[in-house]
Amino acid sequence: MNRYSIAASTLVVAALCTAGPALARDQIKVVGSSTVFPYSQAAAEEFGKKTGQKPPVVESTGTGGGMKIFCQGIGEQNPDLTGASRAMKKSEWELCTKNGVTDVTEIQIGYDGLSIAQSKKGTPMDLTEAQIFLALAAEVPDGDKLVPNPYKKWSDVDKSLPDVAILAYGPPPTSGTRDAFVELTMHDGCKALDYFKTKKGEMEKADFDKLIGEKCTPMRQDGPFVEAGENDNLIVQRIDADPNALGIFGYSFLYENQDKLQGVKIEGITPTFETIADGSYPIARPMFFYVKNAHRNVIPGLTDFVVEYTSDEAMGEGGYLQERGLVVLAPEPLKEMQDRAKNAEKMSAPTS
């Protein structure tokens, strides 16, 4: 253990002692992504069964919300792990560092597909990323300018699409799912349109990237896109009740609700374990969790919980996380992540 880790652990011990024996925390605290939540919850349940210790408390706060809480500091009042449906940002790392959270291990647990789902009672849809952008963006091209989105029905976007009102339930801006959806779907769909193709040919790369960030990121706020909070189960309920509505969430929620929902094809590809793993499904992303190493060997059971979470039985082929919808890592990167977790390898500062 290096001197920074020793100093950080000392601060944790001090915080626990200050709280007094009766108040010292005897349960692991996990926050973060709503998509990673069911995996963390499953690992927590298995840990409790195998060890007889209290299962970790797992809270769904969204990726951004989890990072903010995780980076508030060390000590028993702060969580030990956070789940994330994207990698930690440079700004989040800086917040952690500012608050003394300087020794963190980053673990990729597998992959997830960003599913757009609909009720099985609805007419099956096959959408391009450009069509999705035109349906859900705050502004869309009209000739040589951008205008507030005028499209009310899917058939307004493309005559081949159903003549029904556009209604999509999705995550809020604090969600890693929202970040990934914007980057992987909205930005790609935006760049596929002639207006932005022309701009790309006319502008410097930095200016074009800025244009994409400013004009292709905002979701419309006039009704067709509804922010449904961090509760993905609520989105499932809403689209199950409305055959014309769509929902945006991680593949695990589609997988767990196959009796009620069907995946919308994207660019002709259905979201499945196979299409997400082989990269043919266009909107897939990695899943992570982050461990506060200063809390290891201080918060009871934390080191053992990290071992359980990264075990073959959990993260490996046929493991209980795959049973819940996780697309698992190949054997070599899985071993790399297991070693990283076991050795409490300190992550490098993100560059963006």
Rank of each mutant, 00 (worst) to 15 (best):
G83S: 09
Y251T: 01
I266Y: 02
S175E: 03
N2D: 15
T303C: 00
Q118Y: 11
G66F: 00
V104G: 09
D339S: 11
K191A: 09
F249Y: 08
N231R: 14
Q338C: 03
A330P: 08
G279Q: 10
I283K: 00
K346D: 11
G263N: 06
G201P: 03
D26H: 13
I132R: 02
D222I: 10
V157E: 03
E345T: 15
C71Y: 11
T351S: 14
G201Y: 08
E274T: 12
V104I: 15
M337L: 07
R285P: 01
A245K: 06
V13K: 13
P38A: 07
N78I: 13
K90W: 08
G64C: 01
T351Q: 15
G65R: 02
G201A: 07
E256D: 09
N244M: 07
T63I: 01
P173S: 05
A7C: 07
T174I: 13
R86S: 12
D207G: 02
A277P: 01
A138G: 03
T97L: 12
A42F: 01
E183N: 03
V298H: 05
Y251C: 02
Q262N: 08
Q27S: 13
K54T: 13
P56I: 07
I28F: 07
E227L: 08
L234I: 13
E332S: 12
Y4K: 14
G263I: 00
F225I: 11
A135Y: 12
T275H: 03
R296E: 10
L326D: 04
A206C: 02
M337V: 10
D304H: 09
T18C: 03
L114F: 09
I6T: 12
C17M: 14
G113R: 04
E76W: 06
N297Y: 11
Q258T: 10
V327C: 09
R296C: 06
A87K: 14
H187R: 00
E46W: 04
P331L: 06
G301W: 04
E274D: 15
K98R: 15
Q338D: 04
A206M: 08
V36F: 05
G247K: 05
L95G: 02
P286M: 11
K191V: 00
T97M: 12
I212C: 01
A168Q: 06
F181K: 00
T102K: 15
S34I: 01
G268E: 00
R238K: 15
I239D: 00
